[in-house]
């Protein structure tokens, strides 16, 4: 905060500092009102979100019952029976797969840009990655559907053939030719590619702030570059990486268009067979069903949106706590 200027006073004993806010002019008052009004916009948004979304979701919740809505896995617009458990699990599955792929890549990439690449290339890559973090998810979705997917299908087939020991990679017992399109894994990988630049950009930033003397100290003590990274950079950057990961997780949970494009249609049951067709996502479901929804189904979509919001807010605040705790102890 601004260090307070010393007050002008004839009496030296009355020489207490004044704060800028102590004797505001008319201009100050007006300026303050404008700023408060602007800051209140955020309050208005959050209040409107709570009021309108809850109000709009009431008809569907009243029809199905709140308990049923959050514990059933069904979406039948014709009879007005809705339950989002399967969608919630599907959303978390896709986001988790995305994180499993993205975090090692992003941390490796951040280290590569900061420590391994020649400085000139590193600087260029930093700019490119920051740019990629701003690339619309639609473009990732289009690339995922038209280019990436075709290369992933053989991989899915290979995984389902050779890694049967792991339950997630097994195929369901349904007869017929297995369909590998529109699986949680493909959606998760596309979303993962999307969040790699986001996580890289934030964690690279934190890792670049490690005091250079500490790194040089580690090297001067005879440590190898990996030892320097392991003992200096990673402990220092840990909270930043965790924060970036949570940011990426939040993004992955709320990702809409990329998932909608890759999945094409939504499965409302939780599907444990992640390499096989049939995956769900709350955001993509809202996006795909919105156009032809009846008022009651619209209300159910809004209610699922509230569930999604609760999910991302929980992740966001968990991230804040984790980051706060790790920074306190390090």
């Amino acid at each position: 905060m601004v260090a307070p200027p010393v007050g002008f006073s004839d009496d030296p004993s009355n020489d207490i500092p004044i704060r800028p806010a102590d004797n505001p002019t008319v201009g100050d008052r007006i300026f303050r009102v404008i700023c408060v009004a602007s800051a209140s916009v955020a309050l208005v948004i959050i209040a409107a979100t709570a009021i309108f979304l809850l109000n709009k979701s009431r008809p569907a919740l009243a029809k199905t019952g709140v308990w049923h809505f959050f514990t059933a896995s069904v979406w039948n617009a014709a009879v007005g029976d809705f339950g989002v458990l399967g969608l919630v699990i599907g959303t978390i599955t896709i986001a988790t797969i995305a994180l499993i792929v993205a975090v090692p890549l992003a941390v490796g990439m951040a280290l590569f840009v900061n420590e391994y690449a020649p400085p000139r290339i590193g600087r260029t890559l930093t700019a490119v990655i920051d740019l990629l973090a701003a690339v619309p998810s639609l473009i990732f979705g289009m690339w995922g559907y038209f280019a990436f997917k075709n290369h992933l299908i053989p991989v899915s087939r290979w995984i389902s053939d050779h890694l049967v020991a792991i339950p997630f990679f097994r195929l369901s017992n349904a007869t017929g030719k297995p369909d590998f399109t529109g699986s949680s894994m493909i959606a998760g990988l596309v979303v993962g590619m999307m969040i790699v630049p986001i996580i890289t950009s934030v964690s690279r930033d934190v890792m670049a702030r490690v005091p250079r003397e500490q790194c040089e100290g580690a090297l001067a003590l005879g440590g190898s570059r990996w030892a320097m990274i392991r003992d200096v950079i990673l402990p220092y950057g840990k909270s930043g990486v965790v924060g970036a990961t949570m940011l990426g997780f939040g993004r992955a949970l709320g990702e809409t268009v990329a998932v909608a494009l890759v999945l094409q249609n939504i499965s409302y049951q939780a599907n444990p067979h992640i390499v096989q067709h049939g995956a769900g996502s709350i955001a993509a479901n809202i996006f795909l069903r919105f156009g032809e929804a009846s008022p009651l189904e619209l209300s159910a979509l809004v209610a699922s949106g509230v569930a999604l919001m609760a999910l991302t807010f929980t992740v966001g605040f968990a991230a804040r706590r984790v980051v706060a705790r790790t920074t306190r102890f390090s």
């Binding site: 800051a39 955020a42 309050l43 948004i45 959050i46 409107a48 979100t49 309108f52 979304l53 109000n55 709009k56 939040g250 949970l253 709320g254 809409t256 955001a283 809202i286 996006f287 979509l301 809004v302 949106g305 999604l308 919001m309 991302t312 807010f313 992740v315 966001g316 605040f317 804040r320």
Partner: peptide, 22 residues
């Protein structure tokens, strides 16, 4: 306000669309 702004930063974009449409 800072708390709310942090929370809003995590608002999924589709929810913003749903809000305006409602």
């Amino acid at each position: 306000i800072r708390f709310i702004v942090e929370g809003l930063a995590g608002l999924p974009s589709i929810v913003a669309g749903l809000l305006i449409f409602s």
